[in-house]
Write a protein that binds this DNA or RNA. Structure first.
Length: 207
DNA sequence: GCTGCGATTGACT
DNA sequence: GTCAATCGCAGCT
């Protein structure tokens, strides 16, 4: 059952839309000095590359921020948003192409106490990593881990418990011209309580 | 150099 | 259901 992710088979050379559903059920672990934290992935979203996906950070080409997306697969891409939140992605596609899978939600299956110390003592197990920014906070993933190796000393990914029944829907929180919300690139485990509640993208009001 | 806004969350009505 | 917080990036002047 233990199957550490590697790219020997070229599995991660495929696009994020192909890889994303296969990551559901996988175990993603961060090894820290305070102990390991493991996540069972229950919800992801796929983002494609230059000129392919108007909702992707890489749509307009390579920049300092998204450089890691253009690098080799099986690396971590982190970014900072809304002035306060960190989100984490798994880079896919061969080097030079930019596609990534956003980790939207999961269930903390090891290191629950560590996760709770990051999120707050009142937070229920179900809510610890229910949402992309909650997930990174629970696991203690810092923005500075952008580009980290997912087969390395700090992060590991194990393709275990892969699910057969995959739910799909339009992506959350993505807005803009051209009907971005129509891309059905959100994948989740149906009826799993840790899947984040769907919120349609709402244009922000001015003050 | 300046400005608008985002792959969100938590607090509040 | 509504809304503020908060800051780096990208696009424009």
């Amino acid at each position: 059952m233990f199957r550490p992710a590697s790219n020997e088979s070229g599995f991660f050379d495929r696009t994020s839309v192909e890889v994303a559903p296969a990551l559901l059920g996988a175990r993603f672990t961060r090894h820290s000095s305070l102990g390991d934290v493991s996540l069972r992935i229950t919800e992801v979203e796929a983002y494609l590359g230059v000129g392919e996906d108007p909702g992707s950070h890489s749509f307009r080409g390579r920049t300092a921020r998204n450089a890691v997306m253009f690098g080799p697969p099986l690396h971590l891409y982190t970014y900072f948003t809304y002035g306060m939140h960190v989100c984490a992605n798994i880079v896919c596609s061969p080097e030079g192409q930019a596609s990534a899978v956003l980790l939207r939600a999961g269930e903390i299956v090891a290191g629950v106490e560590y996760a709770r110390s990051n999120r707050g003592e009142q937070v229920t197990n179900r809510d610890l990593a229910r949402g992309p920014a909650r997930l990174t906070k629970a696991m203690g993933i810092p923005l500075s881990d952008d580009g980290a190796d997912l087969m390395g000393a700090v992060y590991t990914l194990e393709l275990v418990d892969q699910v057969q029944d995959v739910g799909t829907s339009v992506r959350t929180g993505v807005s803009g011209p051209g009907g971005l919300a129509e891309y059905p690139w959100r994948f989740f485990i149906p009826d799993d309580p840790t899947v984040s509640p769907y919120r349609a993208s709402v244009p922000r009001r001015r003050t």
